[in-house]
Amino acid sequence: MTDTQYFLVRRVHSLLGVIPLGVFLFAHMTTNSMALFGQEAFDHKVALIHSLGPLLPFVEAAVIFIPLVLHIIIGIVIAHTGVSNTSDLGYGRNWAYTLQRWTGWIALAFLLYHTITLRFLDVAGGRANFFPYMSYLFRYDSLWMFWIFAYLAGGLAVIYHFANGLCTFCMTWGITVGPKSQRVMAGIAAVVGLGLVAMLVSSIVGFYVNAPIEAANWQSGIMLTGPN
């Protein structure tokens, strides 16, 4: 690999994390948080996305799927080149570095399960009826506590990975050069991250509190036969 190619691979990884993946994360969390305002508000948002119709798979591939897979593959290679040493050097940014790798792995496991169940399995039967499905998982399933925990853990991992990634993005590209600008950026990233956490939590509350009646007697069929 030439120097330029190597540079490009590393910078593509860095850039994809913010654009489009970070932007998509915002859009996705906005949609989810609509659950707080009830099923109608949420379904309205989902319908908006689905209104892309036949274009949807292409947009998904270009904005989400391909960038995500590239980010993951390069990320795994990068993670392999590091040996974390927080036990001797427990400095804040060293923890941030180590957590960036851990949350990367957690996010990977979470997103694999998430996309397979809620994106690819629903392809087979048409459109998923997400709201009652999530309400069922978070409220009526015998494992409801586990589902909430998994959703929260996965969501927090993704959000941390994104927020810390914003800071390192600015360092990597030479945007924040001194310690002061890096501290300001850390503050901005914290606000962004907390905003996303608020959206994450409101989606859990929404799916739980606004559970529709059919969620209680949910069976595997409902998920695949959503409203038109």
Partner: peptide, 27 residues
Amino acid sequence: MGPGGVVDCGNAQNCVRVCPKHIPLTD
């Protein structure tokens, strides 16, 4: 810009913490 260059830095910033000469390495 090549393999092993600045692009391989992981921004852990331990370097700047331990440098006995307080060199602003991360800058």
